[in-house]
Design a protein around this nucleic acid. Structure first.
Length: 139
RNA sequence: GCGGAAGGCUGGAUGGCCGCGGUCCCGGACGUGUUCCGGGAUCGAGGAAAGUCCGGACUCCCUGAAGCAACGGUGCCGGGUAACGCCCGGGCGGGGCAACCCGACGGAUCAGCGCCACAGAGAACAGACCGCCUUCGUUUCGACGGGGGUCAGGGUGAAACGGUGGGGUAAGAGCCCACCGGGGGGCUGGCAACAGCGCCCGCAUGGCAAGCCCCACCGGGAGCAAUGCCAAAUAGGGGCCUCGCGCGCGGCUGAUCGCCUUCGGGUGAUAUCGGCGCAGGGAUGCUUCAGCCCGAGAGGCCCGGGUUGGCAGCUUGAGGCGUGCAGGCAACUGCACGUCCAGAGGAAUGGUCGUCGGCGCCGGAGACCCCGGCGUCACAGAAUCCGGCUUACAGGCCUUCCGCGCGC
RNA sequence: GCGGGUAUGGUGAAAAGGUAUCACGCGAGCUUCCCAAGCUAAAGUUACGGGUUCGAUUCCCGUUACCCGCU
């Protein structure tokens, strides 16, 4: 689906391509490759009451913000996993365009029970807090 | 009224704000593409979408059919169905006062093999431990030993070679009799499973086939991550195996060439060519038949390397739903009309806040109700599609039936 | 998604219808001045729920958990 004439500037996915499903929000794009998740997991991380945030500066010229969601089988059955992912997706949609930094990838990982049960306002607060921590100076 | 049985339906409702995916339409942008951006319309999870336990459709192994072998499955009878291990009806057996429910329900002398631990005398062509009866011998007169008859009683066991009662006997025994049970063949009813009736046989011949097996019937294998196409990239590969690259016939058809011609054609030839036929090859463990393909190369296996993109398959189908009519006890079938009802791809169908509703608890008031507060609202999420089965499931609703109690 | 497999003391394995066995480990006791070695005894609803059978770890059905393969 990548047009040959598209500028090949990105590292992993294909910048300039249409924003994939799920989260059509300007400047946001969904991670889909295993490599992208592994790279984010090796970089910075910050746990909160509702979820775990991993973040990584891609250090390329692409200003897009990447975001990925992970809910393993520990979270529960398919219904519980989907609900946790949808709530994470919602707070990412509300907060990341303002607070996320261009050129970074973020991965939100759901927790069993907490992610689905926590009060929504608190969950948003968790993300704002985690973003501040993760953007702070490296130890 | 209480307790129960069977069948079916439902699976919260509604509003605000912010969002998501498919299809169609409109507008804009430039990169003129099934591109991107914006707007509108419309559609957007389940009864189990689940488990993946069966059956199919579809695709590939060239297709179909038949037989044998191996392996696997099913297992009372009849019907339904595309098919089934499913459903319906019936039979038989068991449970329940009943409504009703449950059942892997072919074959164990009449094919064969195997197993039945421990206990017990004996566990499968029976057997004799304690006993019982009889006889002979010995005798210290308590009994002991040998022979014969016998299996009712004892005890063991999951199971002991028909059961109960009576006659009979030395003691006993289907030894004889009655009833029950069993076996055989017959008649009647039924498509059948099977049932009923009367006759004959005193009748040793157990259990396990969810042990091997026998009988009947069914089944080729793999699976949408199948499969096909496009693009990119690397290689432009290596190794092994099978069959062939041919012979002959001008028999048929065309081409070509020669001769004749009334110009419609006829006739002959094949050095050369295309097609057909005969002969060769084309997945299964083997064989056969039919079809199709191949024509000078075809096919198969293994190793190595690259990609992890896109499109198709992808949702209209033995379809579902609704209504009506007809056939059938029913499952189901036929006809007519209407309707189109998710098609994603790190995977949409939502997030959040109220109101109403159900349930539980608390308080006021009270014991029918009413008001307020708090908590809670099942199991569970399409992934190629359909028919079943199984498993999970808060609460609610409807219909029919049975038993008991009370009243008329 | 599609397909396949496994489950037995803490761990790894046997058992082929008839009293669940072996090795290591753990803890206890004996032995020793102490340790090691040695000896002794102990620990299991055979993953769970049903069925067949007199009897099931074994045979059959369902459930759960874990593992593997396929682009």
């Amino acid at each position: 689906m990548t047009p040959p004439e598209a500028p090949e500037t990105g590292t992993d996915a294909t910048p300039g391509s249409p924003v994939p499903a799920v989260l059509s929000c300007p400047g946001l794009r969904v991670l889909s490759k295993r490599r992208q998740f592994l790279a984010a997991a090796r970089a910075r991380r910050q746990g909160t009451a509702g979820f775990l945030l991993q973040a990584r500066d891609r250090r390329d010229d692409d200003p897009a913000i990447g975001v990925g969601f992970t809910c393993s089988k520990k979270v529960g059955n398919a219904v519980a996993r989907n609900r946790a992912k949808r709530r994470l997706r919602e707070i990412a949609r509300l907060e990341l365009p303002d607070l996320g930094r261009p050129g970074w990838d973020y991965v939100l990982i759901g927790k069993a029970g907490e992610t689905a049960a926590r009060d929504f306002a608190d969950l948003r607060g968790d993300l704002r807090h985690a973003l501040r921590k993760v953007h702070g100076p490296e130890r």
